[in-house]
């Protein structure tokens, strides 16, 4: 059982007009085997939270803490966080020219587990995981994300999650750009991994559709850099009906 604990997190970014505050005191605790959905208007800071968890250099932490089973995550480099068990499925996965998917996956697996995986087993694992996500094996020989369609990029993110077996995963709009079948396949993947490893999930989304497949234990409404309200599944349905007006007017 692991705990990812975010306390009073304050984050800003440097812009041409100077420093801009984006996260204004975020509190969130995620336990293993829990699914937390975060919903909120565009620009409210959801991706900022995701990137800050992963340690993207663009974001400056001005205050608060992030701990993983008591360990200070903010002290860790990006790669250390991943090795500690954090995974970010990105909203916009990056293309890496000249680096094939299979080389990338093997290098990442070796880094995370501290030793090279046994070749036979590994090839089987990769093939099996691709099959489950309905990815053609030819993706292995393609360069990372290069020329992938939007939906293919998202599947490739989940493929990595499946193979790297993190303790906590942040899925930043993984459902956007997926067709109906892919949405189901990807959701099944998340549920399967959770079932096998007790993965804790922070699921950022604009749509309740994915929540039909991935049952959230908690739903958080994210507005203007902080959590404005928390609830269960029913909160998501209400948001879909009413939108975010209530929170925005309240000036939270």
């Amino acid at each position: 059982m692991s705990v990812l604990d975010i306390k009073d997190l304050r984050v800003s970014i440097e812009t041409e007009q100077g420093s801009k505050e984006i996260l204004r005191g975020v509190d969130l605790t995620i336990n293993s085997d829990e699914i937390h959905a975060i919903m909120g208007p565009n620009g409210s800071g959801k991706s900022t939270l995701a990137y800050t968890l992963a340690g993207h250099p663009r974001y400056t932490v001005d205050g608060g803490s992030i701990t993983l089973d008591g360990e200070d995550v903010l002290e860790m480099s990006v790669d250390e966080r991943a090795r500690a068990g954090l995974f970010l499925a990105m909203q916009y996965p990056v293309e890496i020219p000249g680096v094939t998917v299979s080389n990338f996956l093997r290098t990442a697996k070796t880094a995370i587990s501290g030793e090279a995986p046994r070749v036979r087993e590994w090839i089987g694992d990769v093939r099996g995981a691709m099959e489950k996500l309905r990815m053609d094996p030819s993706f292995g020989e393609r360069n990372v994300n290069e020329g992938f369609s939007g939906g293919e990029k998202k599947r490739h993110e989940i493929l990595q999650m499946e193979l790297l077996r993190p303790r906590f995963a942040v899925l930043d709009e993984t459902d956007s750009g997926l067709d109906v079948d892919a949405l189901r396949i990807v959701s099944e993947g998340v549920n399967r991994i959770k079932g096998e490893t007790g993965l804790g999930v922070l699921l950022i989304t604009h749509y309740t559709r994915i929540l039909r497949y991935i049952q959230p234990d908690h739903v958080h409404v994210f507005v203007n850099g902080r959590i404005a309200e928390q609830g269960g599944r029913e909160l998501a349905d209400r948001l879909e009906e009413e939108g975010y007006d209530r929170y925005l007017k309240a000036g939270v």
């Binding site: 992963a54 340690g55 993207h56 250099p57 480099s77 990006v78 790669d79 966080r81 991943a82 090795r83 995974f87 970010l88 990105m90 996965p93 990056v94 890496i96 990338f104 290098t107 990442a108 880094a111 995370i112 990372v144 990595q160 790297l164």
Partner: peptide, 8 residues
Amino acid sequence: FYLQSRGI
């Protein structure tokens, strides 16, 4: 960042 976020 992308590569490092995968533990590399």
